[in-house]
Design a binder for these strands. Structure first.
Length: 588
DNA sequence: TCAGAGTGCGCC
DNA sequence: AAACGGCGCACGCTGA
C-alpha cells in the first residue's frame, strides 16, 4: 500500500482545525500515535494520526502544534468510534499528553484475538493486517527516532499507513465478529478497555519502607535455611568411602539448592526416595526427614525474594511514584486478563505481602470479590438440580459436599469435614481423577486421602450431582475444536479440545466475561467519586477512592459487580464481598 | 555460547 | 484411554 500524497502533515495550529472540521462529520475514525517511548508518564507523543473514510490521513505533529478544543472534542466525542490497534497504549499516551480521549472504541488487536482466540497466533498490526487483508506493512520505521526535529518522508509514510490500514481492518474484523456471533464478547472487551487503561495508567502505591523490612526478614531467613541445608545436603556419597577427608567441607562440592536435580540426588543419598522435588512429592516425606520442611521453606523464601521482594521497587515509576503493571486484556486463551512487569496477580495472598499495597494519603481501598464464582458458574452451566437448589437456598457448598461424601447430615458437618470437601469440589468439577485428588488434597489442603477413599468420594460426589456428571459426559462426546462461554466468547484449538480444557474454558472464561463486564459498568461511575480500579485478579476488583466517598463507592462496586454477575447467572445467586480497607490485605 | 524446553511455584 | 484449568517468572540444564 502506498500512502504517498495521501496524507496531510500538519505542523501549525492554524491548519489543524481547518482539516479537523471534515473529521468531525465522521462517526468512525482511525487513530494511531508515534511516540518517543512506551511510558505515558515520561514519554511524549510526536505524531497523532487520524484517518477516516474518503479523507486524506492527517498527521499532526504535536511537537509543533497546540492541542485545540476541536481535536479534544473529536477524541472525546461519544458519537465517534475511535479505531485503535492495541488502544490501551495509545489511549494512555493521549491521557499522558492531557488529551481526554474516550469511548466508543474499536480495537483491532482485541478483535483479532477474539476471532482467533486460543490458536496462539500473533496479533501485531503487521501480522493481523497480513492475515485479514493480505497486505504487507513495512514496519522498518516503527522504532526509528521520533524525537528528531525533521522527520523523514519514510517516517511520515509509515505513520500515515498505520492509521489508514485500520479502516479496512475494522470492516473485515467486524464482518468476522458478526459471522462468529462474537458481538456480545466484543462489547464486553471494548467496554472494558477504558477501565483496563485506567488501571494501568493509575497504578498502585507501594509501602516502600515496609517492603524493605520484609525484604530484610526474608533475606535473613533464606540465609539461615541455606546454610543449614548446604551443611546437611551433600552431593558426594562419603558414607561408602574407607577414608574420611580431614576437612570434609573442602572435598565436598557445595550443593546448588536451586537445582532440583542436585536436590533430588542429595535427598536420595539420605534415603529419601524422591522422584521429583516439587511440593507434591516433598509433602509425602515431610514427616520423615526434617530437612524436607526446611527445604520447602527455603524454596518459598527464595521465591518470595527473587520474584517479588527484590523486584518490586524497580517498577516504581519515577514520575508517578506508583507501580504500573502491563495489562494484557485478553492475556489467556480462556479470555482472562493477564498482567506482567510486575506480576501483580500473583502477589502472595497473605497479610505481609498484600499489606504492602496501600492507598494514597486521604484515600481508601475497596477490596471486592465474587464469592465462589467458578463453582456458581458450573452450577449455572451444567444445570445440576441439587447444586442449583443449594445455591438458591444459600447453603455452604463445601459443607454440602462434605455431608454427601461422608454420609452425614448437613448440621453434623465439622470444620475438618469441610476442609476435606474443598479439594473435592475444586478438583472433581473439572474432571480430576481420584489419583490426582489424593495428591491435590494432600499438597494443597493438607488433607490425607487414600486412593480407594478418593474413588469412593468421587463416586458419591457424582451420584449426588448427576447434572454435573451428565455435563462432563456431554463434553467428552462433543469432540469439538471450538468452545464458547455464555457470552459467546470462543476458544479454538487446531485439534479436538482435550476434555479437561473443554470443561474448564466455559467456566474460567465466563468468570472473565463477568469481571470484565463489571469493569465496563464501573469505570465511568467511579470517576464521579474520583475513584479508580487499580487491580483486577480474575474475580477480585480493587478500587482506590477518596476516604469521603468510600461508603458510596463500596455500595456501587457491590451493586454493579452483582449486576454483571446476574447478567449471566440466571439461576444462581451472585454474591459479592466488599470492604473498605487501608491496604490490600484486609478482606470482607 | 545461547536460545529454548523443562521444572517448579506464586496467584485465581 | 486418560485428563483440573489459566497465567508470569526464575533458573539450572540441554543441545545445536
Amino acid at each position: 500500500m502506498n500512502s504517498k500524497n495521501n496524507y496531510i502533515y500538519i505542523v501549525n495550529t492554524l491548519d489543524l482545525d481547518t482539516h479537523l472540521e471534515n473529521v468531525a462529520f465522521h462517526n468512525l475514525i482511525a487513530i494511531d500515535t508515534e511516540t518517543t517511548g512506551l511510558c505515558p508518564h515520561t514519554n511524549k507523543i510526536r505524531l497523532l494520526q487520524i484517518s477516516c473514510e474518503s479523507e486524506p490521513t492527517l498527521i499532526i505533529d504535536l511537537f509543533k502544534t497546540e492541542v485545540t478544543d476541536l481535536l479534544i472534542k473529536i477524541l472525546a466525542s461519544e458519537h465517534i468510534t475511535k479505531i485503535f490497534h492495541n488502544g490501551i497504549f495509545d489511549i494512555q499516551m493521549l491521557w499522558g499528553a492531557g488529551i481526554p480521549v474516550s469511548p466508543p472504541y474499536f480495537d483491532t488487536q482485541l478483535a483479532s484475538i477474539l476471532v482467533d482466540n486460543g490458536l496462539g497466533l500473533t496479533h501485531s498490526l503487521k501480522v493481523v493486517t497480513h492475515r485479514h487483508l493480505g497486505i504487507e506493512l513495512d514496519k522498518t520505521e516503527q522504532d526509528s527516532n521520533w524525537s528528531v526535529p525533521k522527520l523523514t518522508s519514510e517516517q511520515l509514510d509509515y505513520a500515515a499507513e498505520d492509521a489508514l490500514v485500520l479502516l479496512p481492518l475494522e470492516r473485515e474484523l467486524s464482518k468476522k465478529i458478526k459471522n462468529l456471533k462474537l458481538e456480545r464478547a466484543r462489547d464486553i472487551e471494548f467496554g472494558c478497555l477504558t477501565g483496563a487503561a485506567m488501571l494501568e495508567f493509575k497504578g498502585m502505591k507501594l509501602d516502600l519502607p515496609q517492603l524493605k523490612v520484609l525484604q530484610k526478614e526474608y533475606s535473613e531467613l533464606k540465609k539461615k535455611l541455606k546454610a543449614e541445608l548446604e551443611n546437611s545436603l551433600q552431593l558426594d556419597d562419603v558414607s561408602n568411602s574407607t577414608t574420611l577427608p580431614l576437612f570434609p567441607s573442602e572435598y565436598k562440592t557445595k550443593i546448588n539448592l536451586n537445582s532440583h536435580h542436585q536436590v533430588k540426588k542429595a535427598f536420595n543419598l539420605l534415603g529419601v526416595p524422591l522422584t521429583s522435588t516439587d511440593k507434591d512429592h516433598l509433602s509425602i516425606y515431610i514427616g520423615q526427614n526434617e530437612l524436607i520442611q526446611k527445604f520447602v521453606d527455603y524454596r518459598k523464601a527464595n521465591d518470595y525474594l527473587t520474584k517479588y521482594l527484590n523486584k518490586l521497587e524497580r517498577f516504581i515509576n519515577p514520575k508517578t511514584g506508583r507501580i504500573h503493571t502491563s495489562v494484557f486484556q485478553i492475556g489467556a486463551a480462556t479470555g482472562r486478563m493477564s498482567v506482567r512487569n510486575p506480576p501483580l496477580q500473583q502477589i502472595p495472598n497473605n497479610t505481609k505481602f498484600r499489606s504492602l499495597f496501600v492507598p494514597e494519603e486521604g484515600y481508601d481501598l475497596i477490596v471486592a470479590d465474587y464469592s465462589q464464582m467458578e463453582l456458581r458458574i458450573i452450577a449455572e452451566v451444567c444445570g445440576d438440580e441439587t447444586l442449583t437448589l443449594a445455591y438458591q437456598q444459600g447453603l455452604d457448598i463445601h459443607s454440602l459436599t462434605a455431608s454427601v461424601i461422608l454420609d452425614k447430615p448437613l448440621d453434623q458437618v465439622t470444620k475438618e469435614d469441610r476442609r476435606l470437601a474443598k479439594p473435592v469440589n475444586f478438583g472433581l468439577v473439572y474432571g480430576m481423577m481420584p489419583a490426582s485428588l489424593v495428591v491435590y488434597a494432600r499438597s494443597n489442603y493438607g488433607v490425607a486421602i487414600a486412593q480407594k477413599e478418593a474413588e469412593e468420594i468421587s463416586a458419591k460426589f457424582f451420584k449426588r450431582f448427576p447434572g454435573l456428571l451428565e455435563w462432563h459426559k456431554q463434553i467428552k462426546s462433543q469432540n469439538t475444536k471450538i468452545v464458547r462461554t455464555l457470552s459467546g466468547r470462543i476458544r479454538k484449538w487446531s485439534y479436538p479440545a482435550p476434555f479437561t480444557e473443554a470443561v474448564n474454558t466455559p467456566v474460567q472464561g465466563l468468570n472473565a466475561d463477568i469481571t470484565k463486564l463489571a469493569v465496563s459498568l464501573l469505570w465511568a461511575p467511579l470517576i464521579k467519586y474520583d475513584a479508580c480500579i487499580i487491580a483486577l485478579v480474575h474475580d477480585e476488583i480493587v478500587v482506590e477512592v477518596p476516604h469521603a466517598h468510600a461508603v458510596e463507592t463500596r455500595n456501587l462496586v457491590v451493586e454493579l459487580m452483582q449486576q454483571a454477575g446476574s447478567t449471566f447467572l440466571r439461576h444462581i445467586p451472585c454474591v459479592v464481598d466488599a470492604a473498605i480497607c487501608k491496604s490490600w490485605a484486609e478482606k470482607a
